[in-house]
Amino acid sequence: MRRCLNIAWKDLRAEFRTKQMLNSMLLFSFLIVAIFGFAFGPYPERIERLAPGVLWVAFTFAGMLGLSRSFASEKEQGCLDGLKLCPVDRSAIYIGKAISNLILMFIMEGVTIPVFIVLFDYSIPNLGEIGFVVLLGTAGFVFVGTLLSALTVNTRTREILLPVILFPVLVPVIVSAVSATTKVLSGVLNILDELRILGTYDAIFFIVALLIFEYTIEE
């Protein structure tokens, strides 16, 4: 576990030095919220029906940018081979990468939500519950995304391919996260069914990823 954190630490250290990925993720999610603002007109009615969709589109699309670079940086200078030479299980590489992706996602989401609140002059009720849904949804997104990012890094059209193969797999996350967010925003706190699906999804894909990650980075 210490070595998983070491991998994540190394990623974040390099990332905070250049901030290339983080900046583009932040800007992109900002852009998506703004575009929705333009699309819905300046003062949309029933904002609590739009908010979940806008937020989750922003999270997943901006997150996609980060994921697509996650393993690309390892390909330079053969670093992925360097990692594979380290005396750790392949799954440690997966966990390390997932941790750094999670942290970048949380930072991006932590900025996007206030931006949304300000732009749409909408005070989000039940922030605690929203936070929990975002946590579980993001975990699912990152667990699958990290695996598929490692998978596409060796293909020719990785930038296009990753969204195409990732989004259909993410349907349960997006659907239940949006559904749960919608309910919470309209004051309904009975979201156990959604949370159950999100939790199961996270658990299943984390285990599946640990089992099959090694096949994605083999040669």
Binding site: R2, R3, N6, I7, W9, K10, R13, A14, E15, R17, T18, S73, E76, Q77, G78, C79, D81, G82, L83, L85, C86, P87, V88
Partner: peptide, 28 residues
């Protein structure tokens, strides 16, 4: 084993010392 290839396995955005510290921790 130690491996040296024509690829350096070094992270360009980390300093020399950080690179070695990273690998040092990986090898405990």
């Amino acid at each position: 084993i130690g491996v040296i290839s024509h690829e350096t396995y070094l992270y360009e955005d980390l300093s020399a010392q950080e690179n070695l510290q990273f690998y040092g921790r990986m090898y405990e």
